[in-house]
Design a protein around this nucleic acid. Structure first.
Lengths: 366, 366
DNA sequence: CTGAAAGCGCTTACAG
DNA sequence: CTGAAAGCGCTTACAG
């Protein structure tokens, strides 16, 4: 396999000229460049990665730490991994994949050995040991997601509060005066990522701002409980759904008409669902089963899904979690840190609304 | 960051002694080793990866090429990626992830630049350009899956023929005298991977060997067609299921009692399903809907699923595709090639039977 | 059992 | 616009 000396010899120049010609870091004479290009082609030369790493200051490799928790939704996880790899390649970076146990231990290894220039952290949880590790390592890094303590870290995430607010605004703007959020199972709010809380808080806060009563219910994953939770919400009885009752949080509107006590509001006509794909489907079935149609009787928005809601029956409006958006930005921020110009920050990506016709004005008098 | 010279100085030895002490490639005096260990700890020394790559003959990195076709089942794909990374780490190898467009182009790049010592190829299809590329690159590589032309390549895969034969044997041994295989949609057999064909052929061949009539039907993915296909099979009428009729292949038994012409065999009581997770569920629903119970009326085996069939209702026996098995072996073979001792081959991993109680003797007289 | 030194293949000041 | 040379941090014959 040809090396830079071979190229230099064939082109009749010095190796430094070859190096500069290939990196473009200094101007090269017309004819010289031509001779070098010719030699490169003739020898099918490709710079040796190890030589480049050792001679230069970059390895052009990022570590991607992506543990697979058992509650990980595979398609979404895959989309994030894919998006990171693609974004990294756009900066001429390769990606070393660290999983499971290595997700933490490997981080120390690859950064101490200078195998990687930086780290992309996926699937960040509230008490993520990788956050502390990255901080102590002092390596360029970007987290996708926000840990409990984000101090000193560069984080990128969807603006979940804004996403929830966007959903509320759409429904209220359409004329709905009572809203509900059907959320994840209780366990999701008690550990792991914090974005479900951020979505919930954004939802309740904006509803309060808009002066509209809103109810939040956590929904367990089995069909009977899903149906019960929906029933409890639709029947307007906070205590109506067994099993869901104690999971309800009510917040009276702060400045509107319907600012009465919990239970005094009429049944919600604007529903936001923040749950897994399967839960959406059961909810849609149950809505149909009750003889209700979307959006005539009920307006429904899928909150930050990682899956496609346009192929649902009926298609649902959504404010999707778009892996590419966060990943592209995270990689950019990691690359910029190599030039030493990035302040620690939590950077929130603006949500986007996808209209698929599942929101309309409520029935008069409902 | 400390380097090997720092360690040598602190330990009062030469750098070659440090290197040998750390690699274990030559015996080191007791006290010398202790001093070096001490120095390493004191300086928190970790060998520089680039120096190691350039000085030595290994980069200790494998490329994993894993394109994401749109028919890829995310959880299975993730399991394979995970298994490769874990297996590689067991050999002290890191894994560079190559996806999408880079799945092919990146292969050339990382092997020409000597960034990686070898390549693991995932998700191999019949006409996989990566097979030809790997062959022409002459780099150590192991494919997981078998391409159309496997000449000169090292491939590892589940023995799908044996898996299908195992399913047939279980059913025939239990007393079933008429079998059916409900397979993937037609499109799957016409392009992409070849394992569905291998499973089908193994199924029909073993049934013939055992002298038992067997029918094969391709099943499209939407529920009505799934139910129709099952109906066509259970009603014993090869032409009974519209849309599925033309997808049926019959093979008379070669030496048994029921070796009549197609259609003359009685309805199958032993069913093998080789399809996606969702298809299994619809089939189970339809079986229950017809008032049939498993295994009293019908014995059912899931062929090479990548998902868990023990949590189905009812739980299904299966001959699972186990990512870890193939991936561990593929990584082993890649590592062995670095010592130059592996002949090209297609190595088939033996199938394993998982009993969950969905197979029993057929009803007398059925 | 240990050391001095060459060499891996680049990059990048330094010099002209 | 180009070149000679040092240096990155290891590994590994070679020598003792």
């Amino acid at each position: 396999m040809a090396n830079i000396h071979d190229v230099a010899r064939v082109a009749g120049v010095s190796i430094s000229t070859v190096s500069y010609a290939l990196s473009g870091k200094r101007p090269i004479g017309e004819k010289t460049r031509l001779r070098i290009d010719e030699a490169v082609r003739e020898l099918d030369y490709m710079p040796n990665a190890a030589g480049r790493m050792l001679g230069g200051t970059r390895t052009r490799i990022f570590a991607l730490t992506a543990p697979l928790r058992n509650d990980t939704y595979a398609p979404a996880h895959m989309a994030f991994v894919l998006a990171v790899v693609t974004a990294a390649r756009a900066h001429d970076y390769d990606v070393l994949l660290l999983t499971e146990d290595e997700a933490t231990g490997g981080l120390r290894r690859v950064s101490s050995s200078r195998l990687v220039d930086g780290i992309i952290v996926l699937d960040v949880s509230v008490n993520d040991e990788r956050a502390d590790l990255v901080r102590s390592l002092g390596v360029p890094a970007a987290l996708i997601g926000v840990p409990g303590n984000a101090e000193g870290l560069v984080c990128v995430d969807l603006d979940f509060e804004a996403a929830a607010a966007l959903a509320v605004d759409r429904l209220v703007d359409a004329g709905h005066t009572s809203l509900a959020l059907l959320g994840h199972p209780r366990a999701v709010y008690e550990r792991g990522s914090n974005f479900p809380m951020r979505f919930r808080d954004g939802f309740l806060a904006r509803a309060a701002e808009r002066g509209v009563p809103a109810v939040f219910t956590m929904v367990e994953k089995d069909s009977p409980q899903i149906r019960a939770a929906l029933g409890g919400v639709l029947d307007g009885a906070p205590g109506g759904a067994e099993g869901a009752a104690t999971d309800s949080v009510h917040r009276g509107a702060t400045g509107g008409v319907h600012n009465g006590a919990p239970g005094s509001a009429h049944a919600p006509t604007g529903i936001v669902v923040h749950a897994e794909e399967g839960v959406h489907k059961v909810i849609l079935e149950e809505i149909a089963h009750r003889g209700l149609s979307i959006p005539a009787d009920l307006s429904v928005i899928a909150g930050v899904p990682t899956f496609d809601t346009s192929s649902f029956t009926p298609a649902l409006d959504s404010i999707p979690l778009i892996p590419v958006d966060s990943c592209v930005r995270a990689v950019e921020l990691a690359v910029q840190q190599l030039d030493g110009t990035v302040e620690p920050r939590v950077e929130l990506v603006a949500p986007k609304y996808r209209d698929h016709g599942s929101v309309a004005a409520p029935r008069p008098g409902s």
